[in-house]
Amino acid sequence: MSQELLNALALFVLAILVGFEVISKVPATLHTPLMSGANSIHGIVLVGGMLIAAEADNPLSYLLAFVAMTFGAMNVVGGYVVTDRMLQMFRKRTTPAAAPSAEQGEGRN
């Protein structure tokens, strides 16, 4: 194996360990936003779509790169926006008892 590949494998293993450590501290109530947030992070494959688009030189490659770009962009943009929508709902209201129903609807997009 090349040195480059060995380095990449080291990166992979360390990132897995970091992932375990960071995730295991998240409380259950935030697991759905967390899952959605993690879901948007793997949209990084968009970068892969850009790199193959740049190297494409035949119709099949153009097509594959185009679909990969579209899919990746949908994953990234949609993922972050929907996660943000979820998380903004967790804001604290300082006076819960004094919050009348007149406030309802606020905070919804």
Binding site: A8, L11, F12, A15, I16, G19, I23, A38, I41, H42
Partner: peptide
């Protein structure tokens, strides 16, 4: 590298 790190993070989580 960024695909490897981000992908591994999500795989672990």
């Amino acid at each position: 590298p960024v695909l490897i790190i981000a992908g591994a993070l999500v795989g672990a989580s």
